[in-house]
């Protein structure tokens, strides 16, 4: 069987990228983003990309890097409020944007990866999101039809993985990564720890290797935090009672 192991982002992306392609990128804010693969796409210089990702990074990190380099033609996202450049490019008409409600985006990707071309959801009925889409009544309530999403390439960040492509995510860095892993015609994964096959407990694997085409240990993980929020010791603050 052909090996899924790759040396680095550049090698993993070889022969995969082309202008005008659609790319799904995992992450929520800057948490759980495939930073090495984003850099690899930046270095390859492909353009006219349609990028499907919950957010678009910040001005100088994450997907914001591809935006600044003029490589993105269109974004499909739920929230882009952390990126000033994004707002400027969109309002001036240089960037296309399709807003999806976050849960609808997650489900579109899950559906796409599961071979489901469309589904009905309550989310967005009676809003701009439902315009031009089929609305149907089920059991007395209105639902809007949303389409499943697939991409030419999915770029995923996991915590641990093995040569088979089995993946484990860590804490809230999981977010969109598992669904995106299933919805790419090609799925490439960067991990913090590449472990020997047999090390991961089969009962604890989040993404089975069948969804993964290439895997490598990321050369560096900056893991930048958008809003470091702390509390002084011995003093209760927000969330203490939760």
């Amino acid at each position: 069987m052909a090996s899924k192991l790759r040396d680095n982002a550049g090698q993993a992306l070889e022969g995969v990228l082309f202008d005008g392609m659609t790319i799904m990128a995992g992450g929520f804010g800057l948490c759980g983003i495939p930073e090495n693969l984003i850099d690899g796409i930046r270095n390859a210089g492909v353009t006219d990309l349609t990028v499907i990702s919950n957010n678009c990074g910040i001005d100088d990190f994450g997907l914001g890097v591809l935006l600044a380099a003029g490589q993105i033609k269109k974004m499909i996202s739920s929230y882009v409020g952390e990126n000033k450049l994004f707002e400027k490019l969109y309002l001036s008409g240089e960037l296309e944007l399709e807003f999806n409600p976050q849960g609808t985006l997650a489900e579109r990707i899950r559906a796409g990866g599961a071979g489901i071309p469309a589904f009905f959801t309550k989310t967005g009925v009676g809003t701009l999101v439902a315009e031009g889409k089929e609305v149907r009544e089920f059991d007395g309530e209105l639902y809007v039809m949303e389409r499943g999403l697939v991409a030419d390439l999915s770029i995923v960040k996991a915590w641990k993985g093995d040569a088979e492509g089995n993946l484990v995510y860590r804490k809230t860095a999981r977010n969109f990564n598992p669904m995106m892993a299933t919805a790419g015609k090609v799925t490439l994964v960067e991990v913090e720890e590449l472990v020997p096959v047999g090390t991961l407990d089969p009962d604890q694997i989040h993404t089975p290797g069948i969804f993964v085409d290439g895997i490598f240990r990321g050369a560096h993980f900056e893991k930048r935090i958008e809003r470091v929020t702390t509390r002084p010791r011995e003093t209760a603050l927000a969330g203490e009672n939760a």
């Binding site: 800057l30 759980g32 702390t230 209760a236 927000a238």
Partner: peptide, 19 residues
């Protein structure tokens, strides 16, 4: 609750992107 200073984990944030 929010973490103590120096204990923020980049893999653990809320929907407002706070640690």
């Amino acid at each position: 609750p929010f973490p103590y200073e120096g204990e923020a984990d980049p893999d653990l944030i809320n929907a407002g992107k706070q640690t």
